[in-house]
Nucleic acid binder design. Structure first.
Lengths: 189, 189
DNA sequence: TGTACATCAGTGAACGCGCGTTCACTGATGTAC
DNA sequence: TGTACATCAGTGAACGCGCGTTCACTGATGTAC
C-alpha cells in the first residue's frame, strides 16, 4: 500500500543508512538487497521504487558513510585525539560504523564510476581537514604530511583487522598511533 | 583422462598461481572457479581433485601471493628502493601481480581462519624484513617504524587505487614515497 | 468540505542467471604379477 | 619385460541455491472537481 511522501523519504533514508552499515560490515557482495531491505524493515520488492540498481545504492551508501566520517573527524581539535579515536580497538572491531575506506578497501577500486567519484571527493575533503590539524611547515609540507598520515591511518586499520592475532593487532594500532598521532609538527623544525 | 603425477602437480600449481592473480585483480567474489580453471587451461569439474573448496584455494592463493611478495621485498637493500617500487605507478596499476594485502584489503578480515592465519604469518615476516632495513635507534624503535611504514605503504596504495583522479592518485604515491622512503633513520638521532 | 479518481510506495511471487559443488564417465597412468 | 587390472586427473552435464531484478497487484495517499 502507498505511504505518505514523508514516510517514503524516511524509508529511503533508512535503506541508505542500513546499507551503508551492512556494506561496511559484510562487503559489497556480502550484503544482498533482500537482507538490506529486511534490516530496514521493508520487503525487497520495494527496493526499485527508490533506486535504479544495487550499484546505485552502493554509491549513495558509501558517500553517505564517508560524509559522516568527515563530519565526525571535524570534531577533533588535535591530530592526537583524532588518531586515538581512529586507531582505537573500538574502531578496529566496529567495522559497520567506522571508516568506509578501511572497511571496503580495495573493493572501492573495483566499483562503478559513481562510487569512485564520490570517494575521491570525500578523500579530498578529509585531506583538507587533516591539513588544518597539521602544525608548522609550509602549506606543501602540511599537505604532504596530511596524505602520509591518512595513508598510515587506513593502512594500519586494514592490517590490524586482517591479522588473526589480537596481540599483533593491538601492537599495530599502538605503533601507528605513536607514529602518526605525534607527527602533526614538521620534523624539520 | 588421467595425467601423470608430475603433470597433475604442475596443473595444481598453475591453478594456485592463476587464482592468486585473479583474486587480487577481481576480488574473492569476483573470480569464480569456472573462470579460474579456464584461465589455467582446464575445465571446472576437475577443481575438486585438487582442492576441498573455493575457500581452501583462496587460503593457498593468498599465502602464495604474500610469500612471493615477501621474497620480492627481500631483494631491496634500502628502504628507499623498496618504497619506490611498492609505491610506483606500475604497482598501483598492476593489481594482479602486486601486494595481496593492498589488493584484497578489508576482504581478508572477512575470510576463513585459514586465510587469516596465513596472512598473519606473512605480515610478521614482512615486518621482520622491514625492521632490518631500518637504521639507527633501538630494536623497539625500529620495530615501531617498520609497522608504521608498512601501514603507510598499504594505506597509500589503497587510497591511490580507490581515487578516481590520476593526479591525486600520483600525489598520494609521491607524498608517501617521500614520507616513508626516507624515514629509515630514527628521527631522534 | 466532500467525493471520485489517479497515483505510486510497498508487497510477495516469479524469473533468469551465475555460482559452488556433485557426479557418472573417460582413458592415460601407475601397479601387480 | 610384457600383460591385465586398478587408479584417479580431468571432462562436461547437471544440481540446488541465492542473487539482482521484474511484475501484477494492493490500498493508502494525494489530487481534481
Amino acid at each position: 500500500m502507498r505511504v505518505s511522501r514523508e514516510k517514503a523519504a524516511e524509508n529511503r533514508k533508512r535503506i541508505v543508512e542500513t546499507a551503508s552499515r551492512m556494506f561496511r560490515k559484510e562487503g559489497f557482495d556480502g550484503a544482498g538487497i533482500d537482507a538490506i531491505m529486511k534490516a530496514a524493515g521493508l520487503t525487497h520488492g520495494g527496493f526499485y521504487c527508490h533506486f535504479e540498481s544495487k550499484e546505485d545504492l552502493a554509491a549513495e551508501a558509501v558517500i553517505s558513510a564517508l560524509k559522516r566520517g568527515v563530519e565526525k573527524q571535524s570534531r577533533y581539535e588535535t591530530l592526537g585525539d583524532l588518531m586515538s579515536a581512529y586507531l582505537s580497538k573500538q574502531h578496529c572491531t566496529n567495522r559497520a560504523n567506522g571508516c568506509a575506506i578501511a572497511a571496503l578497501g580495495a573493493d572501492i577500486a573495483r566499483q562503478s564510476k559513481g562510487v569512485r567519484r564520490g570517494v575521491t571527493d570525500c578523500i579530498s575533503d578529509q585531506l583538507g581537514q587533516l591539513v588544518n590539524l597539521m602544525k608548522g611547515g609550509t602549506v606543501v609540507s602540511r599537505r604532504k604530511r596530511a596524505i602520509s598520515t591518512l595513508s598510515g591511518m587506513v593502512g594500519a586499520l586494514t592490517l590490524a583487522r586482517a591479522v588473526d592475532d589480537p596481540i599483533l593487532s593491538e601492537e599495530i594500532l599502538k605503533a601507528a598511533r605513536d607514529a602518526f598521532g605525534g607527527c602533526s609538527r614538521n620534523q624539520d623544525e
